[in-house]
Design a protein around this nucleic acid. Structure first.
Length: 433
RNA sequence: GGAGAGAUGGCAGAGUGGUCGAAUGCGGUUGACUCGAAAUCAAUUGUACUCUUCACGGGGUACCCAGGGUUCGAAUCCCUGUCUCUCCGCCA
């Protein structure tokens, strides 16, 4: 959500930002919005004037004489009728106005590359070289089958397409990665927090999932609850409506939760294996900081650095992508993605997504803080980034670390979380000895 | 799932139809006292919107969980929802 005062004072900047994000004037009419806002304000003023008159009359009734009283009550009733009509009109216009405001995307960062879609994204650096093999590498599904690590086919009979069941050492690996990342985030000052995957509707608006990505989210009408696609959803609303002290900032959460996504727009994409599933586990980085673009940009870089560290600890070759204006979602001001090298697909595939939302979400959740310098109440900035998401990351992990005997090498940093094992797989026992 | 109780300012807690944005206490802020601190004393202490002012400021409207309703007038009465607590049942 944007500040209407900013829109009124900088209509051209706003129009330009919306155009960069690919919104047409037909989709969001800024001039119309400004006019509507003026109309709403006029109605507010007239409504308030009527309410004032009515309040004065009501207050005078108690002390009025018995003769005067009926006349005052009659007059008050009359104004009451008028007021009711005015209020209804106001509510109508206000609804139109709110509707536009809730559908207004965030403006992109001036430094973000401008482009229509993912083709406009810019690789800003590559770390590590694509893995070279002196044998013919297998893809992750083959390796999983050779090592008895999954029930990929059977589970779909039980739970449907795009679900996974992994077993033996691989299921431990999945949890080990989360523990490793949670430890890392704790070192960086984050509060670990496990959060529900269930959410009411309001937080979905707060985060921006609604009204923008309705098709992506599971809804359970029997209980009027939604299944969360990310811990960001819950963390973003956890402190909603609060006024924090600046001294409490930044708030750093490392949120762990099962995540659910319908993948409605992804029919036919990534149907093989563990890349795109309906339910997965994610450790999420979430930051609440003060309303200062330099400060939140600093945190944005820090979050990115932490997830790069994760990929480095996992010894995966990766690239950092700066996402262009047309490809970033509505809530975002600036976005980086991390993509890990995936040998079977001969390309980099997304593992992390790191976003600065500025105050756009805070306006929706009404999350504010009191500034120490000027004592004013301001909206916070929020940021989020993947800590680690499984099973997707297992794909590049298994494929990059595979050996000719189908075992998979465990990088040093991860070994403590895998009972010290250096390799996993059916043939690993021979090697350890 | 069954039975009951409740939701008031940062916190605790009064207030059951008429200047109630709301007593009191705690906390916070500022000042006095002090070398300093504590204690004490004094003052102050929500948010949003709107009108007005160059500005300091001033006026007004709304908000006592949320949404409806009754009434000239609602924190207070009625309905619905949400949440919390206690007991029973079930359960990891």
């Amino acid at each position: 959500m944007l500040d209407i005062k900013f829109i009124i004072e900088n209509p051209e900047t706003v129009k330009e930002g919306l155009a960069k994000k690919g919104y047409t004037k037909e989709q969001i009419d800024i001039d119309g919005l400004i006019t509507l806002h003026k109309d709403v304000n006029k109605l507010k003023t007239s409504t308030q004037t009527l309410a004032e008159e009515k309040n004065k009359l009501s207050n005078s009734i108690k002390s009025a004489s018995n003769e005067d009283r009926p006349a005052i009550i009659a007059k008050s009733k009359e104004i009451g009728e008028e007021l009711k009509k005015e209020q209804e009109l106001l509510a109508e216009e206000q609804k139109k106005y709110d509707n536009i405001m809730w559908r207004m995307p965030n403006l992109p960062c001036p430094e973000s590359p401008v482009g229509p879609d993912e083709s406009g994204n810019v690789v800003i650096r590559r770390v590590g070289e694509p893995t070279k093999f002196d044998f013919t590498p297998k893809d992750h599904v083959e390796l999983i089958e050779l090592n008895d690590w999954s029930e990929l086919e059977r589970i779909t009979k039980v739970s449907g397409a795009r679900t996974y069941a992994i077993k033996n050492e691989l299921s431990r690996l999945e949890l080990a990665m989360h523990l490793m990342v949670l430890d890392k985030l704790t070192e960086h000052g984050f509060t670990t927090i496990t959060v529900p995957s269930l959410s009411k509707q309001k937080p979905l608006y707060g985060m921006g999932y609604l009204p923008f990505s309705q098709d992506e989210v599971y809804y359970m009408p029997a209980d009027d609850l939604y299944l969360s696609g990310t811990a960001e959803l819950v963390l973003n609303s956890l402190r909603a409506d609060e006024i924090l002290s600046e001294n409490d900032l930044p708030v750093l959460y490392a949120g762990f939760s099962p995540c659910f996504r319908r993948e409605a727009g992804a029919a036919g994409k990534d149907t093989r294996g563990l890349v795109r599933v309906h339910q997965f586990l994610k450790t999420e980085q979430f930051v609440i900081c003060k309303n200062d673009i330099a400060e939140s940009e600093k945190w944005h870089k820090t979050l990115l650095a932490i997830s790069e560290e994760v990929l480095q600890d996992l010894e995966l070759p990766y690239q950092v992508l700066e996402i262009c204006t047309g490809d970033m979602g509505a809530p975002k001001y600036r976005q980086y993605d991390l993509e890990a090298w995936t040998p079977s697909q001969n390309c980099y595939r997304e593992t992390h997504s790191c976003s600065n939302i500025t105050e756009w979400q805070a306006r929706r959740t009404n999350l504010r803080y009191r500034d120490n310098k000027d004592g004013k109440v301001k909206f916070v900035h929020t940021l989020n980034n993947t800590g680690i998401a499984t099973p997707r990351i297992l794909v590049p992990f298994i494929e990059n670390h595979q050996q000719s005997d189908y075992t998979v090498r465990i990088p040093t940093k991860l070994q403590p979380y895998m009972n010290g094992k250096k390799f996993i797989g059916k043939n690993a026992q021979n090697k350890e000895a």
